[in-house]
Write a protein that binds this DNA or RNA. Structure first.
Lengths: 215, 215, 215, 215
DNA sequence: AGATAATCGAGACGGTACGTCGTGTCTTCTC
DNA sequence: GAGAAGACACGACGTACCGTCTCGATTATCT
């Protein structure tokens, strides 16, 4: 009954994406983000999003599998639009600068990250998505792949450049090395294990780099 | 006499704790842990716990404030009982050994932690509690204070001993230093950002210590 | 899971009727009758009844199986209350008089019935129940047994008295005979096959009592 | 040429009836009757009919106003086709025979009716339409006019012939007289008030023709 | 024969109601 | 007075259809 659509249907009986209403999609993103910001993630409901977006519930269920799914895409879309909006060079905007001073560059980026983590508009949805991702592994992997990994890759690039410049020992794996300063910040923020500050991230960089630098 | 009841008594209920039924309490803990293990945290319900424990719903609501609250205490109780059971000296059992070789000691402990993180009986509830704690800050703080901090304190102790032995620079803050190897592991496990292994934790210790050691 | 209530549970996992809320029950009856009167049966919804009665939907689903079921009981309750209310002798009020003149007695009763059938407060719900009963045989049988048959029995009694008085041939089956004047009226009313009037019911009685054939 | 299309064309649509797809129309009729037979009237949906007929929903909404409307026409069409099929003279086939013995003729016709009422292919849709007609007066009147009245007219004709032959009193109104035996049967069948049988209909004819009173 | 429309299959859409589940409160009766 | 039991008001769930609305792709008559 549902499988008669295409013989080559991979798995899911997905509806015809070509006929998808962009108006509804955008309204749903807006409503989801607004509600999460206003009442928090647990009190945000699919019914609420639908009502706020002026959309039937089925339109949400047709295209997304869960509240978390909606929010993840809404969040990604938010980032996409932000990147597209000011005509700015996308991607470059978020690359880690390379002034030649690795420690200074990392400290600067991490200070920016601290600011971002404290921005409620960013904090509420990403914290909610992270939480959902802990328990829902599939969502978690998407969250990581779409949001986290791209940022981490920037550190990998910067660290590789530092290796080329002889500022980091060549046998160091950058993908692991970056965790020395990124993961502690992430954990403090996510789990409220301790407050975060510029001083703290500066210290992390110092401790970590000291171990990565050649002697 | 008071400690026999529970170290982790919540501080909310007005009801007369002296008349509290230990039978019910234990049945609730058992039911909660069993259900979380069997159907996962989101599908575990207070009604389900009550039914499985053969207990009225009110008995749960009387003593706990939420599903997460029940599970947190159940989980703590599980640890308490495990610690008491073999007659072993509690706490000491989990202290980090001090063989004089800091790197080896840390690697050994982290390997044990890796094993623990992979044990489903441990993983499911603690992951669920961690997730809940991300969003519910109050719960998160209790989770951290009761479960996480005590473990971290062991690292602080061991690092201080290392400082006394001149193996770690004296100006290093141990509470921050420990995060260099603990947080990366925590993040990989919690957020599925990458697989965890003995090799990985060994590497973390190497990278981190290299930075902490005196030159 | 549901069967553990009683080993001798007959079939349905019925809730404890002793704890049933009379307030809710009455409110539901009132709401159901009011809504059917105001918006008609098809637009009357269980959600609407619940909302109007200030009751949870589950409270309706707990005790009734369908909208029609609610309405049937509401209608029966209405009759019960009407019968109880004025302290009048119940039952006797609705017996068919016996003045000795069978034709006159029947005509009088049928004229009353015509009035009743034209009363909207009676018409809307009973027509809706009748309609539902056509398709849902179980409901139909209950409708007939509780509402229709008792009235018909009064005709049986009156016809038997007439037989004793020698006004009706003794071999006549009263249960069938009554249909000669009751069913035509019922059909005209139910199916709008033709208008109903005193004159019409008078004629029916005449035809039925004396037959169509010449004497 | 116009009658070939359908005698029962509804009088609502603006669309160009000349361009109407006969293939779709027939497919819809077939699907509607099949579904009503298979899953019952309430579970028959417009969407279901459209899907089964391989037709867009709009094609149904364009030409009919409701599910009942579709079914009524489908049912009428079924009759039309049955009447046309064996090349028999339509209408005459269903006229009541006139052997001179009124009682015997009526009994014979009613026995045929009993058989028909018991045929599930006939029972399910007509019962559903009747039910819908009780509540939806407009539909009810169409149902009566198209399906019921034509049959009743046959009784009127036969009774008039009997009056001409002096077998029925001349002052009797045949339109009312026929209800004495038709309506009881109809009510028993429709409302399940009691079982129907040849014996029962025979008795009805006897009672109606000769009355209840002694001679 | 080709242009011109309206019907057609399909199905996304905004809605409404469904019947179910879980919440947290309340009540009743037992120990 | 705690506890087992569970009815209750409430709110959200995910599903099913409703009736409307666009979309090409056929028809099918009219130039």
């Amino acid at each position: 009954m549902a499988a008669q659509k295409s013989v080559h249907a991979p798995d899911k009986p997905q509806p015809d994406a070509a006929r998808r209403s962009q108006r509804s999609r955008q309204a749903i993103y807006d409503a989801a983000l607004a509600l999460v910001g206003e009442v928090g993630y647990p009190k945000t409901t699919i019914e609420g999003i639908a009502a706020r977006a002026g959309v039937g519930k089925q339109t949400i269920y047709r295209w997304w599998s869960s509240k978390a799914d909606v929010l993840l895409e809404a969040f990604l879309d938010l980032g996409d639009r932000a990147a597209r909006d000011p005509g700015a060079d996308p991607g470059a905007a978020y690359a880690i600068p390379d002034t030649g001073d690795l420690a200074a560059d990392l400290k600067a980026v991490l200070r920016t990250t601290v600011d971002e983590l404290r921005d409620p508009a960013f904090e509420v949805p990403s914290r909610a998505l992270a939480a959902e991702g802990l328990v829902d592994e599939k969502l978690g992997r998407r969250f990581v792949a779409k949001l986290l990994e791209p940022s981490l890759q920037l550190y990998v690039d910067r660290l590789r450049a530092a290796q080329d410049a002889g500022q980091v020992r060549p046998e160091i794996d950058p993908r692991i090395a970056l965790e020395l300063f990124v993961s502690p910040l992430a954990q403090r923020w996510l789990q409220h294990t301790a407050p975060i500050s510029y001083e703290y991230t500066d210290t992390l960089v110092d401790y970590a780099l000291y171990g990565l630098a050649p002697r």
